[in-house]
Amino acid sequence: MEAELKVFIREAGVFLFMAFFPFITSLLSYCAGMALTGGQVTPAQWFYQLVGFTVMMVAFAMSSSSAWYFRRGMMTGRLEYILASPVSPLVAVLSSALTNVIFNIVYFILIASIGLVLVYGIGHLVNVIGVILFLAITLMPVIGFNLLVGIATIIFREPEPVTNVINSIVSAASGFTYPIILLPSFLQALGQAMPYSYIVNGAREILAGSFQLAQLSPQIFLLGYLALGLVFFRLGEVAYVRKSGVHW
């Protein structure tokens, strides 16, 4: 985990791009909204968009991190060295995923804090503590989701086709920038089956100070994703060993 964290820290360019993106896109949609409604858009609505775009970036990064971990591992030969060591590849990939969780929480908190201060004032910053705890819990199911994508990459070898499809579905159905009830019913169902709609709504409500603890129950149900991810990861390992003869 330490090595992965150092790599993240040294890739400041990526971080900066990731940090700029939600500000730019939310500002664009704010301006578009202002133009279309004749100035009826409030700063709180800009903040709604900012949180949405930020969680979207987190979702993209989290969904594809295992896929890229394996792909980079294959390309650089690191994966073979991990496989030849006494450590299970699952431990290695989980460490990488947990590092991603930490990185993404920091990323979210930085952006959300700026938005929060700008819109609600410095007094609301205390809500950030709640978001940290909330994300630490809700990003756990995403690790399972992440493992599913990772094992698909191991089997199909290329991460792009898998992650592109996953990210398209996630961004369309998770209600990052619009309420999920505006979607057709099948997309609503898809969105509710994935963890991100709960994350984005929960984060918004905690930051605005309107979150109730009872709302955490769906997140606990979503921990099933983690179990599912672990089971499918194991099944994927077995399938891969059979297919390729690689001693996983």
Binding site: E2, A3, V7, T76, G77, E80, Y81, P86
Partner: peptide, 30 residues
């Protein structure tokens, strides 16, 4: 795995954004 060392390609297998010592520490931890 515990009693062997392995070099598969002399120029591969490391994190490019880590230093030499950090890479070795990473493998040591494994």
């Amino acid at each position: 795995r515990r009693i062997i060392g392995l070099v598969l390609a002399p120029d591969k297998g490391f994190y490019t954004r880590l230093t030499g010592i950090e890479n070795l520490v990473y493998y040591g931890r494994l």
